[in-house]
Protein backbone atom coordinates (compact mmCIF):
# COMPACT_ATOMS: atom_id res chain seq x y z
CA UNK A 1 0.00 0.00 0.00
CA UNK A 2 1.13 3.48 -0.70
CA UNK A 3 -0.34 6.21 1.45
CA UNK A 4 1.46 8.90 -0.49
CA UNK A 5 -0.84 8.08 -3.39
CA UNK A 6 -3.63 9.80 -1.48
CA UNK A 7 -3.40 13.50 -2.12
CA UNK A 8 -4.56 15.40 0.98
CA UNK A 9 -5.56 18.35 -1.17
CA UNK A 10 -7.96 16.43 -3.37
CA UNK A 11 -9.15 14.55 -0.30
CA UNK A 12 -10.22 17.83 1.31
CA UNK A 13 -11.87 18.99 -1.90
CA UNK A 14 -13.91 15.79 -2.25
CA UNK A 15 -14.83 15.68 1.42
CA UNK A 16 -16.32 19.15 1.14
CA UNK A 17 -18.38 18.08 -1.85
CA UNK A 18 -19.54 14.93 -0.08
CA UNK A 19 -20.42 16.81 3.13
CA UNK A 20 -22.25 19.82 1.74
CA UNK A 21 -25.70 18.19 1.23
CA UNK A 22 -25.68 16.98 4.85
CA UNK A 23 -24.32 20.30 6.10
CA UNK A 24 -27.04 22.32 4.38
CA UNK A 25 -29.82 20.08 5.67
CA UNK A 26 -28.34 19.98 9.19
CA UNK A 27 -27.93 23.74 9.55
CA UNK A 28 -31.58 24.20 8.55
CA UNK A 29 -32.74 21.56 11.00
CA UNK A 30 -30.65 23.21 13.71
CA UNK A 31 -32.67 26.41 13.40
CA UNK A 32 -35.91 24.41 13.40
CA UNK A 33 -34.93 22.54 16.55
CA UNK A 34 -33.70 25.72 18.22
CA UNK A 35 -37.24 27.04 17.87
CA UNK A 36 -38.47 23.95 19.72
CA UNK A 37 -39.74 21.94 16.74
CA UNK A 38 -38.54 18.46 15.83
CA UNK A 39 -39.00 17.90 12.11
CA UNK A 40 -38.05 14.34 11.16
CA UNK A 41 -39.03 15.03 7.56
CA UNK A 42 -35.54 16.18 6.52
CA UNK A 43 -35.03 13.18 4.24
CA UNK A 44 -38.34 13.85 2.50
CA UNK A 45 -37.67 17.54 2.05
CA UNK A 46 -34.17 16.79 0.77
CA UNK A 47 -35.30 14.38 -1.90
CA UNK A 48 -38.14 16.69 -2.88
CA UNK A 49 -35.64 19.55 -3.13
CA UNK A 50 -33.39 17.29 -5.22
CA UNK A 51 -36.06 16.72 -7.84
CA UNK A 52 -37.63 20.19 -7.81
CA UNK A 53 -34.16 21.74 -8.08
CA UNK A 54 -33.31 19.32 -10.87
CA UNK A 55 -36.48 20.13 -12.78
CA UNK A 56 -35.95 23.88 -12.29
CA UNK A 57 -32.35 23.67 -13.47
CA UNK A 58 -33.11 21.51 -16.51
CA UNK A 59 -36.10 23.60 -17.57
CA UNK A 60 -34.38 26.95 -17.12
CA UNK A 61 -30.87 25.87 -18.05
CA UNK A 62 -29.53 27.75 -15.05
CA UNK A 63 -28.05 25.99 -12.00
CA UNK A 64 -28.80 29.07 -9.89
CA UNK A 65 -32.51 28.84 -10.67
CA UNK A 66 -32.15 25.13 -9.93
CA UNK A 67 -30.94 25.85 -6.42
CA UNK A 68 -33.70 28.41 -5.89
CA UNK A 69 -36.16 25.78 -7.11
CA UNK A 70 -34.69 23.21 -4.73
CA UNK A 71 -35.02 25.56 -1.77
CA UNK A 72 -38.56 26.46 -2.81
CA UNK A 73 -39.46 22.78 -3.15
CA UNK A 74 -38.14 21.92 0.32
CA UNK A 75 -39.94 24.91 1.81
CA UNK A 76 -43.16 23.98 0.02
CA UNK A 77 -43.13 20.50 1.52
CA UNK A 78 -42.43 21.94 4.96
CA UNK A 79 -45.65 23.99 4.65
CA UNK A 80 -47.49 20.72 5.04
CA UNK A 81 -45.58 20.06 8.25
CA UNK A 82 -46.47 23.57 9.46
CA UNK A 83 -50.18 23.04 8.82
CA UNK A 84 -50.12 19.68 10.58
CA UNK A 85 -48.06 20.53 13.62
CA UNK A 86 -48.61 24.25 14.18
CA UNK A 87 -52.30 24.59 13.30
CA UNK A 88 -53.77 21.11 13.59
CA UNK A 89 -51.60 20.24 16.62
CA UNK A 90 -50.55 16.91 15.17
CA UNK A 91 -47.71 14.93 16.72
CA UNK A 92 -44.40 16.21 15.35
CA UNK A 93 -42.63 12.86 15.17
CA UNK A 94 -45.44 11.21 13.23
CA UNK A 95 -45.89 14.23 10.94
CA UNK A 96 -42.16 14.32 10.22
CA UNK A 97 -42.06 10.63 9.34
CA UNK A 98 -45.10 11.14 7.13
CA UNK A 99 -43.34 14.01 5.41
CA UNK A 100 -40.36 11.78 4.63
CA UNK A 101 -42.51 9.09 3.09
CA UNK A 102 -44.50 11.60 1.11
CA UNK A 103 -41.36 13.35 -0.12
CA UNK A 104 -39.88 10.07 -1.33
CA UNK A 105 -43.05 9.08 -3.14
CA UNK A 106 -43.82 12.47 -4.61
CA UNK A 107 -40.27 12.95 -5.87
CA UNK A 108 -40.35 9.55 -7.59
CA UNK A 109 -43.58 10.55 -9.30
CA UNK A 110 -42.35 13.98 -10.38
CA UNK A 111 -38.95 12.70 -11.43
CA UNK A 112 -40.24 9.86 -13.57
CA UNK A 113 -39.55 11.63 -16.85
CA UNK A 114 -36.37 13.33 -15.67
CA UNK A 115 -34.13 10.32 -15.24
CA UNK A 116 -31.23 10.23 -17.67
CA UNK A 117 -31.12 13.97 -18.27
CA UNK A 118 -27.94 15.93 -17.66
CA UNK A 119 -28.33 19.08 -15.55
CA UNK A 120 -26.52 22.29 -16.57
CA UNK A 121 -23.02 22.51 -15.08
CA UNK A 122 -22.51 24.80 -12.12
CA UNK A 123 -19.92 27.54 -12.20
CA UNK A 124 -16.79 27.09 -10.15
CA UNK A 125 -14.98 29.93 -8.49
CA UNK A 126 -12.02 30.91 -10.60
CA UNK A 127 -10.04 33.89 -9.41
CA UNK A 128 -7.04 34.60 -11.58
CA UNK A 129 -3.92 33.96 -9.53
CA UNK A 130 -5.63 32.68 -6.38
CA UNK A 131 -7.32 29.54 -7.79
CA UNK A 132 -4.03 28.44 -9.34
CA UNK A 133 -2.04 28.60 -6.11
CA UNK A 134 -0.66 25.24 -5.03
CA UNK A 135 -2.53 23.55 -2.11
CA UNK A 136 -4.38 26.70 -1.04
CA UNK A 137 -5.84 27.28 -4.50
CA UNK A 138 -7.81 24.02 -4.85
CA UNK A 139 -8.81 23.94 -1.16
CA UNK A 140 -9.96 27.54 -0.80
CA UNK A 141 -10.57 29.14 -4.16
CA UNK A 142 -11.84 26.66 -6.69
CA UNK A 143 -15.12 25.23 -5.41
CA UNK A 144 -18.59 25.60 -6.80
CA UNK A 145 -20.46 28.57 -5.38
CA UNK A 146 -22.72 26.47 -3.17
CA UNK A 147 -19.86 25.33 -0.94
CA UNK A 148 -19.03 28.94 -0.09
CA UNK A 149 -22.71 29.62 0.36
CA UNK A 150 -23.08 26.71 2.80
CA UNK A 151 -20.19 27.96 4.94
CA UNK A 152 -21.55 31.50 4.81
CA UNK A 153 -24.91 30.10 5.86
CA UNK A 154 -23.36 28.47 8.92
CA UNK A 155 -21.74 31.79 9.84
CA UNK A 156 -25.01 33.59 9.20
CA UNK A 157 -27.00 31.18 11.39
CA UNK A 158 -24.43 31.53 14.16
CA UNK A 159 -24.62 35.32 13.96
CA UNK A 160 -28.41 35.28 13.82
CA UNK A 161 -28.82 32.99 16.84
CA UNK A 162 -26.20 34.59 19.05
CA UNK A 163 -25.96 38.20 18.04
CA UNK A 164 -29.42 39.37 16.96
CA UNK A 165 -32.62 40.09 18.81
CA UNK A 166 -34.63 37.94 16.42
CA UNK A 167 -32.27 35.06 17.17
CA UNK A 168 -32.77 35.57 20.87
CA UNK A 169 -36.54 35.46 20.42
CA UNK A 170 -36.25 32.25 18.41
CA UNK A 171 -34.18 30.66 21.15
CA UNK A 172 -36.61 31.90 23.79
CA UNK A 173 -39.47 30.24 21.91
CA UNK A 174 -37.47 27.04 21.82
CA UNK A 175 -36.57 27.13 25.50
CA UNK A 176 -39.95 28.10 26.95
CA UNK A 177 -42.79 28.81 24.58
CA UNK A 178 -45.24 29.72 27.34
CA UNK A 179 -42.95 32.40 28.73
CA UNK A 180 -42.21 33.69 25.23
CA UNK A 181 -45.94 33.82 24.55
CA UNK A 182 -46.56 35.65 27.82
CA UNK A 183 -44.01 38.24 26.77
CA UNK A 184 -46.01 38.83 23.62
CA UNK A 185 -43.86 36.96 21.09
CA UNK A 186 -45.69 35.17 18.31
CA UNK A 187 -44.63 31.60 19.01
CA UNK A 188 -46.40 30.05 16.02
CA UNK A 189 -45.12 32.70 13.63
CA UNK A 190 -41.52 32.25 14.79
CA UNK A 191 -41.77 28.50 14.41
CA UNK A 192 -43.45 28.83 11.05
CA UNK A 193 -40.52 30.87 9.74
CA UNK A 194 -37.99 28.49 11.28
CA UNK A 195 -39.65 25.45 9.69
CA UNK A 196 -39.77 27.19 6.31
CA UNK A 197 -36.07 28.00 6.63
CA UNK A 198 -35.32 24.41 7.57
CA UNK A 199 -37.30 23.14 4.60
CA UNK A 200 -35.49 25.49 2.24
CA UNK A 201 -32.09 24.39 3.55
CA UNK A 202 -32.96 20.69 3.25
CA UNK A 203 -34.22 21.33 -0.28
CA UNK A 204 -30.99 23.12 -1.08
CA UNK A 205 -28.99 20.16 0.23
CA UNK A 206 -31.02 17.84 -1.98
CA UNK A 207 -30.50 20.07 -4.99
CA UNK A 208 -26.75 20.06 -4.31
CA UNK A 209 -26.85 16.28 -4.48
CA UNK A 210 -28.74 16.10 -7.77
CA UNK A 211 -27.04 19.07 -9.44
CA UNK A 212 -23.41 18.86 -8.29
CA UNK A 213 -22.41 15.83 -6.26
CA UNK A 214 -23.84 13.16 -8.53
CA UNK A 215 -25.23 15.30 -11.18
CA UNK A 216 -28.26 13.28 -12.21
CA UNK A 217 -31.71 12.43 -10.95
CA UNK A 218 -32.24 8.93 -9.61
CA UNK A 219 -35.20 7.90 -7.55
CA UNK A 220 -34.42 7.67 -3.83
CA UNK A 221 -30.97 9.14 -4.37
CA UNK A 222 -30.62 10.72 -0.91
CA UNK A 223 -30.45 7.22 0.63
CA UNK A 224 -30.63 8.34 4.24
CA UNK A 225 -28.64 11.59 4.07
CA UNK A 226 -31.52 13.37 5.81
CA UNK A 227 -31.29 11.03 8.78
CA UNK A 228 -27.56 11.62 9.02
CA UNK A 229 -28.28 15.36 9.01
CA UNK A 230 -30.61 14.88 11.98
CA UNK A 231 -27.90 12.98 13.83
CA UNK A 232 -25.35 15.67 12.98
CA UNK A 233 -27.51 18.31 14.71
CA UNK A 234 -27.36 16.35 17.97
CA UNK A 235 -23.70 15.53 17.27
CA UNK A 236 -23.04 19.28 17.01
CA UNK A 237 -24.99 19.90 20.23
CA UNK A 238 -27.17 22.50 18.44
CA UNK A 239 -24.18 24.75 17.75
CA UNK A 240 -23.67 25.90 14.12
CA UNK A 241 -19.88 25.54 13.92
CA UNK A 242 -19.95 22.14 15.57
CA UNK A 243 -22.55 21.08 13.02
CA UNK A 244 -20.11 22.12 10.32
CA UNK A 245 -17.36 20.08 11.96
CA UNK A 246 -19.71 17.13 12.37
CA UNK A 247 -20.78 17.20 8.73
CA UNK A 248 -17.19 17.50 7.46
CA UNK A 249 -16.06 14.74 9.80
CA UNK A 250 -18.76 12.41 8.51
CA UNK A 251 -18.02 13.29 4.89
CA UNK A 252 -14.29 13.13 5.56
CA UNK A 253 -14.34 9.64 7.01
CA UNK A 254 -16.54 8.44 4.14
CA UNK A 255 -14.17 9.84 1.55
CA UNK A 256 -11.05 8.71 3.40
CA UNK A 257 -12.21 5.12 3.66
CA UNK A 258 -12.99 4.99 -0.09
CA UNK A 259 -9.54 6.38 -0.85
CA UNK A 260 -7.84 3.99 1.57
CA UNK A 261 -9.53 1.12 -0.22
CA UNK A 262 -8.46 2.45 -3.59
CA UNK A 263 -4.79 2.41 -2.53
CA UNK A 264 -5.25 -1.09 -1.16
CA UNK A 265 -5.17 -0.78 2.64
CA UNK A 266 -5.90 -4.16 4.14
CA UNK A 267 -7.89 -3.19 7.20
CA UNK A 268 -10.99 -4.83 5.84
CA UNK A 269 -13.35 -2.89 3.68
CA UNK A 270 -16.34 -3.76 5.84
CA UNK A 271 -14.82 -2.01 8.83
CA UNK A 272 -13.77 0.97 6.77
CA UNK A 273 -17.28 1.26 5.39
CA UNK A 274 -18.71 1.28 8.88
CA UNK A 275 -16.42 3.97 10.27
CA UNK A 276 -18.49 7.09 9.48
CA UNK A 277 -21.47 5.59 11.29
CA UNK A 278 -19.42 4.21 14.17
CA UNK A 279 -17.77 7.57 14.77
CA UNK A 280 -21.17 9.27 14.71
CA UNK A 281 -22.51 6.78 17.26
CA UNK A 282 -19.44 7.13 19.51
CA UNK A 283 -19.72 10.91 19.57
CA UNK A 284 -23.45 10.71 20.26
CA UNK A 285 -22.80 8.34 23.16
CA UNK A 286 -20.03 10.50 24.59
CA UNK A 287 -22.23 13.55 24.32
CA UNK A 288 -25.24 12.02 25.96
CA UNK A 289 -23.13 10.45 28.72
CA UNK A 290 -22.93 13.87 30.30
CA UNK A 291 -26.66 14.29 30.92
CA UNK A 292 -26.35 17.75 32.37
CA UNK A 293 -24.58 19.21 29.39
CA UNK A 294 -26.79 17.48 26.88
CA UNK A 295 -29.91 18.81 28.57
CA UNK A 296 -28.47 22.31 28.71
CA UNK A 297 -27.77 22.27 24.99
CA UNK A 298 -30.99 20.68 23.79
CA UNK A 299 -33.83 23.19 23.36
CA UNK A 300 -36.18 22.56 26.30
CA UNK A 301 -39.36 22.67 24.22
CA UNK A 302 -38.05 20.31 21.52
CA UNK A 303 -40.95 18.37 20.04
CA UNK A 304 -43.54 19.86 22.40
CA UNK A 305 -46.76 21.27 21.01
CA UNK A 306 -47.78 24.84 21.76
CA UNK A 307 -51.29 26.15 21.99
CA UNK A 308 -51.95 29.72 23.13
CA UNK A 309 -55.04 28.77 25.17
CA UNK A 310 -53.17 26.50 27.56
Amino acid sequence: MDFSAISPVSLIVSLMIASTPILLAAIGELVVEKSGVLNLGVEGMMIFGAISGFIAAVTSGSPLIGFIGGAAGGALLSVLFIILTQYLMANQVASGLGLTMMGLGLSALLGYSYAGIKPPASAHLDIAGLSDLPVVGPILFSHDIMIYFSIALVAGVWYFLNRTKAGLILRAVGENHDAAHALGYKVIRVRLLAILFGGACAGLGGAYLSLIRVPQWTEGMTTGAGWIALAIVVFGSWKPWRVLIGAYLFGGVTILQLNLQAVGVNIGAAYLSMTPYIITIIVLVVMSADKKRASINAPAMLGRLFHASK
Binding site: S7, A18, M221, T223, L258
Partner: peptide
Protein backbone atom coordinates in the same frame (compact mmCIF):
# COMPACT_ATOMS: atom_id res chain seq x y z
CA UNK B 1 -16.20 -1.92 -1.80
CA UNK B 2 -19.12 0.38 -1.05
CA UNK B 3 -21.31 -2.14 0.80
CA UNK B 4 -24.51 -1.06 -0.86
CA UNK B 5 -26.29 -1.90 -4.11
CA UNK B 6 -27.76 1.52 -4.50
CA UNK B 7 -26.45 4.82 -3.14
CA UNK B 8 -25.74 7.29 -5.96
CA UNK B 9 -23.83 9.67 -3.67
CA UNK B 10 -21.48 6.99 -2.42
CA UNK B 11 -21.07 5.42 -5.84
CA UNK B 12 -20.08 8.84 -7.19
CA UNK B 13 -17.60 9.33 -4.32
CA UNK B 14 -16.10 5.90 -5.01
CA UNK B 15 -15.70 6.74 -8.70
CA UNK B 16 -13.95 9.97 -7.76
CA UNK B 17 -11.63 8.19 -5.34
CA UNK B 18 -10.67 5.67 -8.03
CA UNK B 19 -10.08 8.38 -10.63
CA UNK B 20 -7.94 10.17 -8.03
CA UNK B 21 -5.84 6.99 -7.80
Amino acid sequence: WVYTWFDPGKEADAANALIEQ
